[in-house]
Amino acid sequence: MIELRDITKIYNKKGAAVTALRNVDLQVEKGDIYGVIGYSGAGKSTLVRLINYLEEPTEGQVLIEGVDLASYSVSELRAKKKQIGMIFQHFNLLESKTVFDNVALPLVLLKEKKQVIEKRVYELLAFVGLEDKAKQYPNELSGGQKQRVGIARALASNPTILLCDEATSALDPQTTDSILKLLKKINEEYNITVVIITHEMEVVKQICDKVAVMEKGEIIEQGAVIEVFGNPKHPTTETFVRTVIKNEVPDSLKQAIQKDGNSKLLKLDFLNQSSSEPLISKLIQRFHVKVNILFANTTDIQGAMLVTLIVQLEGEGAKAKEVIQFLEGNDVAVQEVVYP
């Protein structure tokens, strides 16, 4: 659907070359909700602007449905852009036009008939829940409502792709939630491929299927959200994951943990739904060990459960080894933790 092939983007700022992206490869399948996360300056904004050619790559290719955007003429490219909707952090609505006229704009550009425009605009406003605001101006709306107008506008020309550039970063958590639900609904009902640029892991956690983590113009990690969350490899990814999934024992508890030769601290990450089985209970019965649960966290990633336990295991060394083997045999990632 969307393919970025070995993209490098270099800006010339007052004679100095600034590399915004370096050798970036990315593939987004049809129907994906693809998250791109990174700190500011990581290059994610540039990356999303390549998809609708607001930015052209210095090297590499951008393919939409298998066709290189560079091969289009200027007018073909304009036509292609109409199939790619975009929403923005600061909404970018025309303050001088009503909600209706804002949503109608892409259709006006397509030179649609008045009746067609009217029908479509009311349909879209109903979809985003703003039928009653048609005659109002953007400055009379809340942030969430403005973004809904932005979404309705982006959908007006029936795009197959929706690009979201920090679309929820200017919104409060509740509003963010409702906007994300709306994006999910768009993805499901219209089968629109969604690419989301964000610096909030919460956004990725809530609606993305796949995620790419960016740092200094490069993609440092990418894959299915459940895998990246369950097993982050790069330190930056780890930092992002930890903003939504805690796996640290509180300091006060750390001090209280009694150290003795026979106990081990283990961090257990339950992957692949195995959390529905009474594994700990089985373990105690089978190996006759004492298990003290120090920390537990369950994170719901769109229906898939990610469970982390930190347990204190009391038993002799040999037994501990068996226990670890048993757990690993049941799809649990085991890691010994040591607190100084």
Partner: peptide, 18 residues
């Protein structure tokens, strides 16, 4: 005029006249 508006226009595939 807010540069964001111009960016939105460009993203919509508007011609220079539009």
């Amino acid at each position: 005029v807010n540069p964001g508006i111009m960016e939105a226009a460009e993203a919509m595939g508007a011609t220079p006249y539009q």
